[in-house]
Design a protein around this nucleic acid. Structure first.
Lengths: 221, 221
DNA sequence: CCCAAGCTGACACAAACCTGACACGGAGCA
DNA sequence: TGCTCCGTGTCAGGTTTGTGTCAGCTTGGG
């Protein structure tokens, strides 16, 4: 997937860029609308992440021009909490979704996926692995028939694992993906959450295995 | 949602059955028209998936009988590519949609949803969930016999929930769907309305449960 | 046997949530 | 215009609970 990230804040831009790149996407970054226009003219993107307040104008102008030009690349708007009233008008202008800063990366990823899903005809997306089924819409985890109630963070963490089973995630990577860029939690938090998830997975084939010195991975016992 | 699947091919039937069950639906399977008639006589379905070529007759006979008997359960016909000319006549006979084998499950799901949507936009559309019946036209909610009149906002909110039971809706999403763009209500308003709906749902199986940090969902207790 | 890495029960805190009360404003009416 | 009624959204405060840290423990590699 090819992303265009239009954002003037370097710190945030780099964080998002790192995250999406890590996920295997290609990301171009434009710090202002002018650059964004140049990118758009030459490249076809799968998704545009658009900030509202930019040095050379308002992201909504860009959005409006984008839609009136009949381009239909999905757009997700990144908006600050103070711009609350904008959030809705932005949908009117043709944005596919918006996300309020500061946001967790996992939430950004979830919204990107949701938008893509909606675009491609709205297939349901249950994740299955061994005897566990994860339903991101209902926010539930089913372990061989028994439905387990997950809390917010547990859910987000498990989502990461089940999206790429058998892949090893380092604790630092998990911290990055689980927490927003302005929060820094210790890696011990990850250990704690893995512990909690393990409790929920008791009796299941699917288990979170620790790979000493490297991280954790979801795999079948 | 309760499905009746009329299909003689075991392999296909099982695949569809598994998928729909995973999605949380209840599915009965009939391998022929005789069995299907038996099921229909005893159970009320939300959707019928109907094969054309069946060991004891033609699915179109079934469809025609179904419609002349004034039953209005939606029907989606599963047809093979060779039966192209049938596809049209099938709609004439009262099918709501058709899908050509082999099909993707996600496409099947999408069409089921589309048909349901179309249905609920139309004339009589009572939503039932557990022991509550919701009539959006009469603005009433019937909780095991007791009829409750809902106010405007309560109605619109409940409509969202019952259209997708078990799905978690975040407060911000609900604010978006409930309020027009020029009104910016706080998320607390949602909490208040959920509280009011809960009062109305007292004693019912169906409950609005809060998923802390994520939102609310309608589900059976 | 030692040290680093990982695990976990307990805990304190802040965010999330709930709810009774209230103020606002439009509709209907005299 | 003045009045009441009713639906609505906000607010304040009280309550619940998710969450991250810590300390002390266990485990495993060298």
């Amino acid at each position: 997937m090819r992303y265009l990230l239009v954002e003037d804040n370097d710190q945030l831009a780099n964080a998002v860029l790192d995250r999406l790149t890590l996920d295997g996407h290609v990301v171009d970054r434009a710090p202002d609308l002018g650059t964004a226009d140049d990118f758009i003219a030459t490249t076809e993107y799968d998704m545009i992440l658009l900030d509202i307040m930019l040095p050379d104008g308002d992201g909504r102008q860009f959005l409006q021009a984008h839609r009136t030009a009949q381009r239909n690349t999905p757009v997700i708007v990144l908006t600050a909490r103070s711009e609350v009233s904008d959030r809705v008008s932005v949908l009117d202008l043709g944005a596919d979704d918006y996300i309020v800063k500061p946001f967790d990366f996992s939430e950004l990823e979830a919204r990107c996926r949701a938008v893509q899903r909606r675009r491609s005809g709205g297939a349901s997306n249950l994740h299955k692995y061994g005897d566990v089924v994860f339903d991101p819409l209902a926010c539930t985890l089913t372990v061989n028939g028994r439905e387990v109630r997950l809390r917010n963070r547990e859910l987000r963490l498990f989502e990461i694992f089940i999206a790429a089973p058998d892949q090893v995630f380092s604790k630092s990577k998990l911290v990055d993906r689980l927490f927003s860029y302005d929060v820094d939690a210790s890696e011990n938090a990850i250990e704690v959450y893995v512990g909690r998830l393990r409790k929920h997975l008791e009796g299941a084939q699917a288990q979170i295995v620790t790979v000493r010195g490297l991280g954790y991975r979801l795999s079948l016992s």
